[in-house]
Structure formats: structure tokens, C-alpha cells
Amino acid sequence: MTTNQATRITVVGTPAAAGPLRLFLALDAVVTGANGLIYLLAAGPVGRLLDLESGFLRIIGTFLTVYAIGVAVLAVKPLPPATATKVVIEVNALWALASIAAVVFGWLDPNTVGTVWIPLQALVVAGFAVLQFRGLRKAHG
């Protein structure tokens, strides 16, 4: 009796190697897009919940919604370009750092809910940056 084992080889720079990267970009686009639309369309209630200005939330919501569309465009490519993906990773890392800094240095003055929410969303964004970086390394070597 013989057993055949198929060995799956994933070559760097192929769509198969880009699977994890595409997944993490897609998840980022969905979460960021949802967050952006909530800030944009429900700025008043969210502003009251977090004790942040609704105008500020509309600006953030607009940015996040447009950004999510750009990330989604990358996510649907069979092999997302390395340079564009690096920009997404860097923007995510900067967003996470700026969010933490905004609370620590008092650039924003949210209530307790906002003070908890801002670092939590920063951790999610930082997590996306790490996962996307790993996916980029796997996809492009």
C-alpha cells in the first residue's frame, strides 16, 4: 500500500502567496469603512457618546470612508502592490500612534467612554498593520 502526499508550494509574488495579505486588507477595509460611515452618518449621537465634536467626527468619518475604499481596491487585487500596501501599513501605524497620543497628550478631551474607545480602536488598527506587514512579507518576500 502506498500513500501519496501532495505538497503545496506557495511561491512568493503569486496570488496564492498574497491570500493572507488580501484577507487582512479586506478586513481592514470592512472595519474601517463601517467605523467611518458610523462617524459620518451618526456624528451627533456618537459625539455625545464619546464627548467629541460632531464636526470633528464627520471629518474623521469622511477620511475613514475614503481610506477604506482605497484599502478595498487593494484587497481585491490578486497581488496587491507592495508600495501601496506599505502606505496602508504606515497610515495604520500612524493612526494608532496618533490616537494614543491624542488621549495621552490631551489633544482630545473625551469622556470615559471615549477615553476607553480611542485606545481600543488604536489597538485594532495597530493589529491590522502588524498582520498586513506579515502578509506583505509572505506575498512579496
Results as ranks from 00 to 15, higher is better:
residue 121 Q to S: 10
residue 125 V to F: 04
residue 31 V to Q: 08
residue 19 G to T: 12
residue 9 I to L: 13
residue 73 V to R: 01
residue 93 A to R: 13
residue 141 G to K: 00
residue 127 G to M: 09
residue 116 V to N: 07
residue 88 V to P: 01
residue 20 P to S: 03
residue 102 A to D: 08
residue 139 A to S: 09
residue 9 I to R: 13
residue 35 N to H: 08
residue 127 G to D: 09
residue 117 W to R: 05
residue 38 I to E: 07
residue 65 T to I: 06
residue 54 S to L: 07
residue 8 R to V: 15
residue 59 I to D: 05
residue 94 L to G: 03
residue 24 F to H: 11
residue 137 R to G: 13
residue 14 T to E: 13
residue 8 R to N: 15
residue 30 V to S: 06
residue 102 A to Y: 02
residue 126 A to T: 02
residue 63 F to N: 11
residue 105 F to I: 15
residue 15 P to H: 00
residue 91 V to K: 00
residue 78 P to W: 02
residue 65 T to L: 08
residue 118 I to Q: 10
residue 126 A to C: 07
residue 9 I to W: 03
residue 130 V to A: 14
residue 32 T to S: 14
residue 130 V to F: 09
residue 46 V to W: 06
residue 10 T to P: 12
residue 18 A to Q: 08
residue 58 R to H: 10
residue 12 V to A: 15
residue 12 V to W: 05
residue 90 E to G: 14
residue 119 P to V: 06
residue 55 G to T: 14
residue 51 D to M: 08
residue 20 P to G: 00
residue 117 W to M: 13
residue 131 L to N: 04
residue 12 V to N: 13
residue 47 G to F: 02
residue 106 G to D: 03
residue 111 N to C: 12
residue 69 I to C: 02
residue 89 I to S: 05
residue 76 V to Y: 06
residue 10 T to H: 05
residue 134 R to G: 15
residue 23 L to M: 13
residue 41 L to T: 12
residue 30 V to A: 12
residue 96 A to S: 15
residue 38 I to W: 00
residue 15 P to K: 03
residue 60 I to Q: 11
residue 67 Y to R: 07
residue 5 Q to E: 15
residue 4 N to P: 14
residue 32 T to Q: 08
residue 99 S to F: 00
residue 87 V to C: 02
residue 90 E to M: 14
residue 131 L to V: 06
residue 27 L to Q: 06
residue 94 L to Q: 00
residue 132 Q to N: 07
residue 36 G to N: 04
residue 59 I to Y: 09
residue 34 A to L: 15
residue 41 L to N: 06
residue 29 A to D: 02
